[in-house]
Each structure stands twice: as C-alpha cells, then as structure tokens.
Amino acid sequence: MMPDLGRYAFEVSAAYIFSLSVLAGLVIWYLARNARMRRDLAEAEERRSRRDG
C-alpha cells in the first residue's frame, strides 16, 4: 500500500506528518474552544433566566 518513496522517504513523510498534525491541532483547538464557549454561554443564559424568574 505504502508507495516507494525512495531515498527521500524521511523528508516526504516528515512533511506530511508535520503538516497534518498542525492542521489536526488547529482543528482540535478550534473545536475545543467552541465547545467551551457553547457550554459557558448555556450556563450564563441559564443563570440569567433563573434570576429573571
């Protein structure tokens, strides 16, 4: 399955691994921040509705 990368196997795979992990890290960070804000907002809204009756 793995293509034969010849003598540049290290360079090519390092480039792919690095780039994909940067992208993955970025996406995970965006998702985590979004989830946290969504949760905090739900809490804040709930506090407000409880207080306002």
């Binding site: 293509p3 990368l5 010849g6 540049y8 090519v12 792919y16």
Partner: peptide, 9 residues
C-alpha cells in the same frame, strides 16, 4: 524524486 509529493502540501 518523491519529494515532488511535498508540493501538494
């Protein structure tokens, strides 16, 4: 050689 594949990133 195979380094051409880096182009796609």
């Amino acid at each position: 050689g195979s380094t051409v594949k880096i182009l796609f990133l």
